[in-house]
Simulated scan of single mutants.
Amino acid sequence: MSIAVVFDSAGTLLRTYRTAKDVITGEVIPHVETTNLTFSSDERVLIALNIHSREVIDADQSMLVSAYLVEHQIGFGISCTRKVLTADEVGEVLYSDTHARIQDLSECIRDVWNCCRKESVLTMNSGVIVNMGLPGIEFTLTVGGRPFSGAKETITTLHQMGVPTFIASGDRVTKLERMADYLGIPRDRVFGVATPSIKAGIIEDLKQEYDTVVMVGDGINDIAAMKKADYAVLTGQQPGERPKRLYDVANQVIAEVREVVPIVQRLQISTQEI
């Protein structure tokens, strides 16, 4: 009997620091849960931008984010949304926005950097939340993350047990691949800019290849994948409250990612007995 384990990234494998700025009110919101913020309105779309933090800091701070994206031909990925939208619809609003300026994004980058700069292994991703009803960019945001204590050892142990591991995350692929290299997860098992429905599709595809597929997540954007998985694990290593429906779909709740190993060991024994 074969088993595969799929991990979310931010909040599951990575201790994550998130900062958002409300570009309408000017409020900077540290330690924000970006998926909860996005899902609190049907009109919001969480977008990952293919930009580099240093280049944003060095850019003209008064420039519109939309103008910067157009000038540098910067693409984007839709991380999550409650609406069914096309990329063209989202892109039309993103690239014509008149609200957010580079300064708004730089503030988020600096705030996260101040929290994370002492970390030896770090990934940083920036993006925006587009409000389709505004229409325009409602929030700029930056996410920084480092591997949780025990994350690398967990992946190593699972591989030694013959259990392949995968990452399915809404983060940018290039950043995920760098972290996957550190953790020891092959790049062809990394799925970036994965919306909730894409995560669920990844689980369904893996179930065609493996007898048991385990999904390990921590956020509301993992619910669809957890429902599709044969065994759903909710991890609470990332501080913060989680909606009740996450607990409802989880087969097991753990405090640390390293607890995935004994869960898989028990599943191996159960499948062998069957």
Rank of each mutant, 00 (worst) to 15 (best):
E89I: 07
V163D: 03
Y17M: 01
A151L: 06
T174M: 05
T19L: 00
V65L: 15
Q103M: 04
I47W: 00
E256S: 09
A255W: 09
N131M: 13
I203K: 05
R117N: 14
Y95C: 03
E138G: 10
E138M: 10
G201P: 04
V32A: 00
E241Q: 13
H99G: 00
R187D: 05
T98P: 01
V163C: 07
R18A: 09
V121R: 10
S53W: 07
D97A: 05
T86D: 06
E138W: 10
A255P: 03
V264S: 08
D222I: 12
Q208T: 14
I129R: 10
T142V: 12
I185E: 00
T16E: 01
R82A: 12
D230W: 08
L14K: 00
A224R: 11
Q103V: 03
R44C: 00
I155Q: 04
N221G: 13
A59N: 12
D104Q: 03
L246F: 02
V45F: 09
V260Q: 12
A168D: 11
E177S: 11
H99S: 09
Q160E: 15
T142Q: 09
L176A: 06
V260P: 13
A224N: 09
M63L: 15
H72I: 10
D218M: 11
N251M: 07
A225Y: 08
L267D: 12
M124V: 13
S197H: 12
Y17V: 05
D88G: 12
V143C: 12
T174I: 09
S169T: 02
A48S: 13
S53H: 08
H159A: 06
L183V: 04
M1E: 09
D88V: 14
T165I: 03
L141P: 01
R18P: 02
Q272C: 14
V65N: 06
M1K: 10
R189Y: 04
K21L: 02
Q272G: 11
G162C: 09
K83S: 15
A59E: 15
I3Q: 00
L206H: 07
R172V: 12
G77V: 02
V249W: 01
A48D: 06
D188R: 07
T142G: 10
L49G: 06
I203M: 10
D97Y: 04
E27Q: 05
N36P: 02
S41G: 08
E107R: 09
T271F: 07
D218V: 10
I57P: 14
T98G: 03
K244L: 03
G26F: 01
D181P: 05
V130I: 13
G145F: 00
T235G: 11
V23F: 01
A180C: 14
L14W: 01
V190G: 01
V143L: 12
S149I: 14
C116S: 07
A4V: 05
D188C: 08
V253C: 14
H99W: 04
R82S: 14
R54I: 09
G162H: 05
S9N: 05
I167A: 10
H52S: 15
E273P: 07
S79N: 15
G240K: 01
I269H: 15
T19V: 06
E71D: 13
G136E: 07
S149Y: 14
R187G: 08
V6A: 03
R117Q: 13
D171P: 04
I57M: 13
L85R: 04
L206M: 12
L246Y: 06
F166K: 06
P196L: 02
S96D: 13
A87C: 14
T35D: 12
Y210I: 05
